[in-house]
């Protein structure tokens, strides 16, 4: 015959076992769901399309981490001082990384947007800046200007003898990109 005390003791022991078992099962379940999420993610992976150039202006690992700082620094230099070097110019990024199909860095597979969507970082550059490369990469040079104008030095020298109006004319966006 069991005493009342012994019965109570047994029940608490059983409860303990049940609780432990439940905990173990839920832990396994959580681990399994983690594994599930990483294998078939709900968020689309960013697209690292090949750029048009041979290599980036700096190592890719550096650019992934610091491109925003470099762009911000460059924008202030260009805006305030008129320094228009090509290394960290946003236009340079777009020229190289624009999607071959859409000709843009935006869109689902766009170089900028796909990664920013993945990282959930708002991308507001393109509310003002064009997301497409220049329609025609013509360097505007005054006649006889011997200074390189930033991008392709070869073309700059070639253009030296052209008349000014000829080199400037085709360089508008709205008309050309439509």
């Amino acid at each position: 015959m069991f005493s009342l005390a012994k019965l109570r003791e047994m029940l608490t022991w059983r409860r303990g076992v049940v609780l432990t078992a439940l905990l173990a099962i839920s832990a396994v379940a959580v681990a399994a769901s983690d594994e599930f999420a990483s294998s078939s993610s709900r968020v689309a992976k960013p697209v690292y399309a090949e750029g048009k150039g041979d290599k980036c202006v700096k190592e890719e690992s550096y650019m992934r981490r610091h491109h925003m700082n470099e762009l911000k620094h460059h924008r202030n230099e260009t805006m305030r001082k008129g320094i228009r070097t090509s290394q960290f110019s946003l236009q340079g990024c777009i020229d190289c990384h624009a999607d071959k199909k859409t000709n843009s860095v935006l869109g689902k597979d766009g170089f900028c947007q796909s990664c920013h969507s993945y990282a959930a970082v708002k991308l507001d550059c393109f509310e003002c800046h064009a997301s497409k490369p220049k329609a025609s990469k013509v360097i505007k040079a005054m006649p006889n200007q011997s200074v390189q104008t930033g991008t392709e030095s070869g073309i700059a020298t070639e253009l030296q003898l052209n008349t000014y109006t000829e080199t400037v004319e085709p360089n508008t966006t709205s008309g050309a990109s439509k």
Binding site: Q91, E127, H129, A130, K132, K134, N171, T173, S174
Partner: peptide
């Protein structure tokens, strides 16, 4: 605005 001139960012 859309289709800005790449040289003239406006918004």
């Amino acid at each position: 605005l859309h289709d800005q001139n790449p040289d003239v960012p406006r918004g």
